[in-house]
Each structure stands twice: as structure tokens, then as C-alpha cells.
Amino acid sequence: MNLEIISYSSITSHSASSNGETITENLTDAPFAEFSKSIYKKLEVPYPKFFKMDELSKLAFLAGEIVLKEIDTANWNGEKVAIILGNKNSSLSSDQKHYESFKDRDNYFPSPAIFVYTLPNIMMGELCIRHKIKGENSVFIQEKFDAQFLYDYVQHLFEAEAYEYCITGWADYLPNNYEAHLFLIRKSSGEDKHPSFSENFKQLIR
């Protein structure tokens, strides 16, 4: 089955981009808390819950907003949409914050708001809630961005089940080392209007 890439987004500590075009740059080398807020404001997203998310979820959320900006997700059939992502460091940043909150037995106040983000699946949940996605959502912990694995998995999903869209790619966060690259995939219309999933996603295999 021929699939095509409808759109793609990228966020690193240097910039955020949509389909290869820069949306905003982190010219002051601002930390993620500041840079993510500037992207959020740039995108003009009315979603206050963003500020309650952990960093990994914020990263994926922003990349999701960019990759889906041309899609009316309020009215799409969420049952026919899947998300399959790769990630290296799981929710390690939140895990460490959580640990800091209870390691001192004399100052033992674990934060429920941090605890709920101590799984990478929560990032997927935030994306599903935001975009009403009800299909398969899976995040695979990988040593590095395994594009071959993700390509095979997504290709199989479309062939085995009647999905209309799939968001795939990579979202990984450590305080000074983070990146998200999301791709919106669907069955090829045959018009050669969008890049082929097969030819273009495989270029990422390294």
C-alpha cells in the first residue's frame, strides 16, 4: 500500500519548523521552559492544560499542533487515527523530579501532578485527548530513532487495519537534549501532491 506524508514537524533546542520551514528560532538559547512557551504563544493555541504538562508531553503536544495544523481534528474520525512514536529516555526527566520530591524522608511530599507524568504513555494520552484520537497509540523505547521499525509498523497498521491517518515519528526529552519529529501519514491519493512515506521516511534511517 502506498502511503504519503501529509505534513511533518520538527522541534529541537534550536528551532521549531513545519514542513521544513522555520516557525521560530531559539536565538537566545533559552531553556525548554521558556522556548516551549514561546512556541505555544506563536502557535496561538488556546489550551491552558499545556502549562500543567511535563516537558515530554509539552514537546510532543507542540509538535502535534504543528503537524496537525491543517487538519480539522475536532471533526475527523478519531477511531481511524493511530499514533506510533519512538522515544529514548522515556519519562526519565519527570521520574527524577518525582524522586526528588520524596527522597528526603523528613520532607516527604511527592507531587501528584508530577507523578501522573511518570510514564511516556501519558504523552500519547495528551495527544489523544487534544485531537480526539481513539485508534492505536503506542510508544516504543528505542536506543536511537529506529525509522525502519516505525516505517514497518506503520505500513503494517495501514495494511492490517483500516486506518485513515497515523502520526508517527520521534519525541524524546532530557533537560538539555530534546527533539521531536512528527509525521502525519495517510493512504496515498495517487496525485503525487505529497511526498511518499516509503521514499522519504526511509531517508531518516540511519
Binding site: K52, F109, P110, S111, P112, A113, V116
Partner: peptide, 13 residues
């Protein structure tokens, strides 16, 4: 509900 739990922790802490 998570905010409620945080408020409980706030009062205790």
C-alpha cells in the same frame, strides 16, 4: 482531580 490532590499536599506541606 489532580489539582485537588496537589491542594491536599499544599495544606499539609
Amino acid at each position: 482531580s489532580i489539582d485537588a490532590l496537589e491542594l491536599i499536599v499544599l495544606l499539609e506541606k
